[in-house]
Design a binder for these strands. Structure first.
Lengths: 159, 159
DNA sequence: GTAGGATAGCTGCGTGGCGCATCAACTGCG
DNA sequence: CGCAGTTGATGCGCCACGCAGCTATCCTAC
């Protein structure tokens, strides 16, 4: 039964991805506690380090799902903690660019790098083909999550 | 340069997994808003539906990273919403078993199933070998996240 | 140019989830 | 039978967040 075998694989992947995502949430929480921050703050720092250019408050709001007001408070916290700095945008004077303060963020990335060693060891056990398969799947899953999220937002209430 | 090629694959996977996880957080938030719940509540329902047996409040607290007090409030909310029911445990009268109310949870799983169709379509594009690779990686990543989380918790403060 | 709409960011205000400390009920060990 | 350990509930305070309103700025139309 190729069909039932495939169905079992789907089932298993569904279950494992749930556990995987749940573990990520817990890990993120633990990391935030460890650094004396909130999960949202860590998420924001992760986004800022992933992007080469500084982000505006509005972009942070969109990428985290917060309102602009809450994003302002988020940047307030990070600024007060010394992680980021506000820089006015010369092109558009309404906008504020949020830039990382490298020496302060280093404390965070140091923890990431520590953990990164274990991740490297895990990845070393994969072939290059496997790495590409996983990466491609995550990209597809990301795109799908994104469209489904927008779909949910556009039709907010089932009541 | 096989080394630099592999390094580039690591870089790419790191970047994609970040975006993947960020998208999941946003999706979970949107789903919670859609259902008029909180992300934690959705997470809890997801855990409860994943497990065949009912969970105790303590188990829910551990699996969500909440304190027992907050877990009690969480179960309060779900019970008030009609999603779960409290059942005393005969074996250990300190414990309270949290059981799902199927007909009410169906509203939630209906949304999941709707979205599941798109996920099925995504998975149909994979070979069985690829599915196994992804599943295995997620299991390994889950285990690693779990041990790293415990490691972070055991050594809470870097200050 | 200038009026009007759209957008970016900041600020009071109220809500509510969460951690912390405490407590009662119960278990299991000596 | 005590007594330490565990489970779950509760009072309390904190603070992240959404919401509404505001100002400043940009952009388009006339």
């Amino acid at each position: 039964m190729a069909e039932s075998h495939r169905a079992r694989l789907y089932e298993e992947l569904s279950r494992e991805s749930r556990r995987y995502l749940a573990a990520y949430v817990l890990f993120n929480q633990a990391l935030a506690d460890h650094l004396g921050l909130h999960p949202t703050d860590v998420q924001c720092l992760s986004l800022l380090t992933a992007e080469p250019d500084p982000l505006t408050v509005k972009q942070i709001a969109d990428m985290t799902g917060l309102t602009t007001g809450s994003a302002t408070r988020l940047v307030d916290r990070l600024e007060r903690g010394g992680y980021v700095a506000r820089t006015p945008d010369r092109q558009d004077r309404r906008r504020v660019l949020v830039t990382l303060v490298p020496e302060h963020v280093a404390r965070v990335t140091a923890v990431w790098d520590d953990l990164g060693v274990a991740w490297h060891a895990l990845l070393d056990d994969h072939t290059e083909d496997e790495l590409e398969v996983i990466t491609r799947h995550m990209r597809q899953a990301h795109d799908l999550s994104h469209t489904q999220m927008q779909h949910l937002r556009s039709r907010p209430k089932p009541d």
